[in-house]
């Protein structure tokens, strides 16, 4: 009896948890009436772990849909860098937590063309270790993809920090670096690199529970991570829109 009761309680709790996350993203969900235009695509690569935070981007997509007017596909695609299908996804996310083998020449060429033609690449270092196995490997590959372009720290004055939310922090699961790095192509930020495991701070399991601890920052850190994620998406879709003259006075007033 006691065992049955215990089993029942567990089932009820599980059902309650499921119902509590009823509004949570479903992998195939699409906003009624609006055809999703925006979709994250994870970059697939051999060796290492190309999808260490399987729920992170889905959660971010859901937050973008909830908070903004963007029609977002909640399903996260997987993009093969050697395939032509890479060009179906103007925004790519490169995640990992381990070293991986160098990409093929075809993949390098495709990624270079993708970025040069207007694509955006977000690198999210899931192990949160600056100079760690994944960070080193991805830095090596970025050198191959964009050999003549320098990666530098993104100043807080950059329009990305005001593309939707006015933010001055980064969030992420681990505070390994208090800044983003980036590579610009013809004045446009084409590559963004975070070593703070952004997806880790956003990941929830199927029961609606945060999957990873974010330390002392707690919910505020997670909120800041979502805001940064929304801003990255907004920047990819609107570029320097918020630097247009018409916005400047409003933003300055709010910054004060």
């Amino acid at each position: 009896m006691h065992r049955r009761l215990e089993t029942l309680i567990v089932l009820l709790l599980a059902l309650a948890a499921r119902s509590a996350v009823g509004a949570e993203p479903r992998a195939t969900g699409a906003e009624p009436g609006a055809r999703p235009d925006f979709q994250f695509a994870l970059l697939k690569y051999a060796g290492g772990n190309w999808n260490p935070r399987p729920h992170g981007l889905t959660r971010l997509a859901w937050e973008v849909r909830k908070r903004t007017s963007i029609a977002v596909d909640l399903e996260v695609a997987a993009a093969d860098p050697e395939s032509d299908s890479l060009f179906d996804y103007p925004i790519l996310v490169w995640q990992g937590d381990a070293a991986f083998a160098p990409l093929s020449a075809a993949a390098i060429l495709n990624l270079r063309q993708h970025l040069m033609m207007g694509g955006t690449l977000l690198v999210d270092v899931a192990d949160g270790v600056v100079g760690g196995p994944f960070h080193s490997a991805v830095s090596r590959e970025l050198q191959r993809i964009l050999p003549d372009m320098a990666q530098g720290r993104l100043p807080f004055e950059h329009v990305l920090y005001k593309s939707f939310f006015l933010i001055d922090r980064h969030g992420g699961r681990v505070p390994s670096q208090p800044f983003l790095e980036g590579i610009s192509v013809e004045g446009r930020l084409a590559v963004l690199v975070s070593t703070n495991d952004l997806a880790g701070a956003m990941s929830k399991d199927d029961f609606g529970q945060w999957e990873y601890d974010v330390g002392l920052g707690g919910d505020a850190t997670r909120e800041m991570t979502f805001r940064l994620g929304v801003n990255i998406v907004m920047y990819a879709l609107c570029l320097d829109y918020k630097d247009d003259q018409v916005h400047v006075s409003y933003i300055l007033r709010r910054r004060r």
Binding site: K66, R67, T68, F164, F165, L166, Y241, D244, H247, R254
Partner: peptide, 27 residues
């Protein structure tokens, strides 16, 4: 170029007060 993009509709909930958003009214 002068651009106006609708970044948020009445149905969207940014989860932040207006002071923390860079949004301006559509004039």
């Amino acid at each position: 170029l002068v651009s106006f993009f609708i970044l948020r509709t009445q149905a969207d909930t940014p989860g932040a007060p207006d002071e923390e958003l860079s949004l301006i009214p559509f004039p």
